[in-house]
């Protein structure tokens, strides 16, 4: 019974991988609900006191607000720049096109520590005071790639004859963009934006190099962790971050799947 053995083997392998991926997260979630100040096993009493504490923690709150601000700005920047590049590269033919395309995707493969260091040197060289805006710039380097990839994939699947048909029927460039092009890439834009936000929201390394005195939530967690007796509160915040990151990723996935193929006919 070969197929049966294969099936059982595959199932076991997927289970192991799933455990490997999600067991640590489960540990954090469970510990966040532990009443004890020092995380440990077995969990004695369950409580939500750490959530309450974190919720009322002024520093944690500010860090959260900073993270949201940076995430929104970085995704907005990425949406505009990323889709412009996607259009340029997929709708026009020019010299050095493949090189430009590669250069745009490269930043996502670069180690964050290199990107961070490079940005820090540049910020220093230009005499800019690090602020949330320098963090936005840092995050935009990889957020652009996410948006770019999504939009390019969609444009590749959308027939250019739709745009030609629109022009043929009397619509000028702007009308064609508004009525035909934008609706056909809308879900790709939303998905790209959500992914960009999720990436920005939990970024540590680049943020570490580019942030000034203001902290983002991941930085707050990172710093907090080194202080004594804060593990429990950090766990509670971490659960919050997991939830907040998972939601946009889930939505982005759904969007790309449900309306993924807009065929050109």
């Amino acid at each position: 019974m070969e197929p049966r053995a294969v099936r059982v083997g595959l199932r076991a392998a997927s289970t192991v991988v799933m455990l490997f991926l999600y067991l640590p997260l489960a540990v954090i979630v469970l510990q966040a609900f532990s009443a004890s100040k020092i995380p440990g096993w077995p969990i004695g009493d369950y409580s939500t006191r750490w959530f309450r504490l974190a919720w009322n923690d002024h520093f944690a709150r500010t860090a959260f607000e900073n993270s949201v601000t940076v995430g929104l700005r970085a995704s907005a920047l990425a949406l505009v720049l990323g889709s412009c590049v996607a259009f340029a590269l997929s709708r026009f033919r020019f010299f050095g096109q493949n090189t430009v395309s590669l250069l745009f995707v490269l930043p996502i493969a670069l180690p964050g520590i290199v990107t961070g260091l490079a940005l820090l040197s540049t910020i220093d060289y230009l005499g800019i005071t690090p602020s949330l805006w320098t963090v936005v710039a840092g995050h935009a380097t990889f957020c652009i790639v996410v948006v770019f990839n999504n939009v390019v994939a969609r444009l590749r699947r959308t027939s250019t004859s739709l745009e030609e048909a629109s022009m043929d029927l009397g619509a000028d460039g702007w009308q064609t963009f508004r009525h035909i092009t934008l609706p056909s890439i809308a879900t790709a834009l939303v998905a790209g934006g959500l992914l960009a936000f999720a990436l920005s929201f939990d970024e540590v390394v680049v943020t570490l190099f580019t942030a000034g005195s203001q902290q983002t939530l991941p930085l707050w967690i990172y710093n907090q962790f080194r202080l004594p007796n804060t593990a429990a509160e950090v766990n509670a915040v971490a659960v919050f971050v997991i939830a907040l990151t998972a939601i946009p990723v889930y939505l982005a996935q759904r969007l790309m799947r449900d309306t993924g193929g807009i065929p050109g006919r």
Binding site: S161, A165, D168, G264, R265
Partner: peptide, 13 residues
């Protein structure tokens, strides 16, 4: 001048 395209190019949305 108007065109009827080979793949029809109807707007799917």
């Amino acid at each position: 001048v108007n065109t009827v395209f080979q793949d029809y190019a109807l707007f799917p949305h």
